[in-house]
Structures are given as structure tokens and as C-alpha cells.
């Protein structure tokens, strides 16, 4: 039962992520709306663009993938923008997010350990080399992940409840989301401390999960609850604004840094031409689209002045 639940949660997670990515990726090309600094530009240092060059369209553009990474990595790992623009929030937000990254690492270590175990590798405090390393790595990362995630979420919740501005902007779900993470951390910590301090039970579970041994006994009690909760959270995240962990990619690459130039005969131009053929339904006096006129019709006609 618990196995099925975890698989189910995983599937929901993937389906929602894919659905969302597909929805965003298939939207029409929009008008350019970049915002400088654009990280892949030669002069990203001060926010310069290719427009700074005479006859820029004749020049070969040098864009730098490295430049993007230089911005993205510190942004993702260290939450640089929050650090720079909202320090007091960073003290709460960073542990929370870092806790989540560690959580992902923790799961990876558990799965990796489970698979290794299936191949006969012994893991534990008295195991040799790799087994010993996995044992300690899992243990340290696991407790750090649960601790940071829980403390961070608690910090965020307290702030959201006490700061009148944040409160004014919050919906019930915003508190609920933070509570969910706090609860998960508490259940996880209680489970680990009371009955699974070396994460042996969890690892045995991920081993059965990874090797699809659905008839293996599933953990019950606190550990069982921990697994069920974690799976539910996983399935829930992409349906909320927390999906920003992957949609942020679009915000940067498809908007802030999207400075692709439209050139004659390019595939980009082809897409624009077809979108200019979309029918317009805006009904203000100067448009009166009525689903009859296309964007080209609208752009080439002279609007009637108001009667």
C-alpha cells in the first residue's frame, strides 16, 4: 500500500511538472521584454547589450553560456537576489531552500544506498569504505535537511504571521504550505530519533522501492508516516507557486534573457508571421476585432476616431 502510494505520488509529480512545462513551452513567442543585465551578454558585467555597437546587426554576437552559469549557480544555490535585496528574509529563506536541496540529496543518497545494498554492499557504522561513507553522508545530510527545512519554514511562517504586510498578502494556502513543511520536518525528526537514527529502515524501503519489491514489508509507525507525508508533499509542490523551482527557468530564459533578434527568413520570423494571423476579439472602438480581423488587419487599418 505504502509502495503504491509513493509510486503514485511520484507519477503525479511528474505528470504535473510535464503538463506545466508543456503548457508554458508551447505558448506563442511573445514580444521581446528582456531586462538587463542579460547574463549571456559580453558586457553583462555592467548590463551592456549588443545594441551598444555601431551597426550591431552586422556584428557576430558573442554570447556566453558561462556568463549565464555565473548568475544562475549562485542564484540557485545561495539565493543571491534575496541575499542582495532582502537580507532579513534571506536568513529564513536560505535555510529553508538549502534544506530542500539537502532533502533532494538525502533522497538520492537513500536511493543510491538502497541500490548499492541490493548489490550486496554493506552500509553501516562498521562497514568498510564506501558503505561507511554512505552511512555517514546519509546521516549528516538527512538530519541537516530535516533540521534546516523545518527551522527555515518555521522562520518564514512566524514572519508571515507577524509582519502585517506579509499577512495582508497571504492566502490560507500560504500558511498551509509552510505548515506542511514544518510538520514534515517534525515527523521526520521524531521518526528518525525514536526509531531510525541511522536511516536503516528508510534505506531498506528505498531499496525495495528501487528494485520494485512490492511485497517487502513496509515501515509503519512514525517512519511510515514520514514516507507518506514526504510523498504527498512531493506531489503537491508543482501544483502551487512553488513550481517556481523549475518554471524559473522560463522566467529567465524565455523572458528576462530572451534577446533573440528577429531576422528576415528566420524560423522566429516564421512563427511571428503565423501569430500575426491570429484572429482578434478585442472590442474597444479602435479595434473591434470581433474574431474577424487578424493582427495584420488591425495593424494596417486606420482606427476610427471616437464618434
Amino acid at each position: 500500500m505504502l509502495y503504491r502510494f509513493v509510486y503514485g505520488a511520484l507519477i503525479v509529480f511528474l505528470v504535473v511538472v510535464i503538463e506545466r512545462v508543456a503548457r508554458l513551452a508551447t505558448l506563442p513567442v511573445h514580444l521581446r521584454w528582456e531586462l538587463y543585465p542579460v547574463a549571456h551578454e559580453e558586457n553583462a558585467r555592467y548590463g551592456g547589450s549588443f545594441f551598444e555597437h555601431l551597426d550591431w546587426w552586422k556584428r557576430k554576437r558573442n554570447t556566453s553560456m558561462l556568463g549565464e552559469l555565473k548568475v544562475m549557480v549562485p542564484e540557485i544555490v545561495l539565493l543571491k537576489a534575496v541575499h542582495e535585496h532582502n537580507r532579513s528574509l534571506w536568513y529564513r529563506s536560505f535555510p529553508f531552500h538549502f534544506g530542500l536541496y539537502l532533502m533532494a540529496l538525502f533522497v538520492a543518497l537513500l536511493v543510491g544506498g538502497g541500490v548499492a545494498q541490493a548489490f550486496g554492499v554493506e552500509i553501516g557504522a562498521s562497514a568498510p569504505s564506501i558503505g561507511l561513507a554512505l552511512h555517514w553522508a546519509t546521516k549528516v545530510v538527512g538530519f541537516a535537511a530535516l533540521g534546516l527545512m523545518g527551522l527555515g519554514a518555521l522562520g518564514l511562517l512566524v514572519r508571515r504571521l507577524t509582519d502585517p504586510t506579509l499577512r495582508a498578502f497571504s492566502a490560507t494556502a500560504d500558511y498551509f504550505n509552510l505548515l506542511v513543511f514544518i510538520a514534515l520536518a517534525v515527523v521526520g525528526l521524531v521518526a528518525s530519533i525514536t526509531s531510525d537514527v541511522d536511516f536503516v529502515e528508510l534505506r531498506r524501503f528505498t531499496q525495495s522501492l528501487a528494485t520494485v519489491h512490492l511485497d517487502a514489508p513496509a515501515p509503519g509507525g512514525w517512519v511510515g508516516a514520514e514516507i507518506a507525508m514526504a510523498s504527498a508533499v512531493l506531489a503537491y509542490i508543482p501544483a502551487t507557486h512553488m513550481s517556481h523551482f523549475f518554471t524559473k527557468w522560463f522566467m529567465y530564459h524565455s523572458v528576462r534573457w530572451d534577446d533573440r533578434v528577429n531576422t528576415v527568413g528566420s524560423p522566429l520570423e516564421g512563427r511571428i508571421v503565423s501569430q500575426l494571423g491570429y484572429k482578434v476579439d478585442w472590442s474597444a472602438a479602435h479595434i473591434q476585432g470581433g474574431n474577424r480581423k487578424s493582427w495584420v488587419d488591425v495593424a494596417t487599418e486606420k482606427p476610427e476616431p471616437k464618434p
Binding site: 505558448l27 506563442p28 513567442v29 514580444l31 524565455s254 482578434v280 476579439d281
Partner: peptide, 10 residues
């Protein structure tokens, strides 16, 4: 998308 392809994604 028909009415607002220009800015729908952002």
C-alpha cells in the same frame, strides 16, 4: 493566445 500572444507567456 489569439488575443494576447504578444505577452501571454511572461
Amino acid at each position: 493566445k489569439e488575443n494576447n500572444w504578444t505577452f501571454l507567456q511572461p
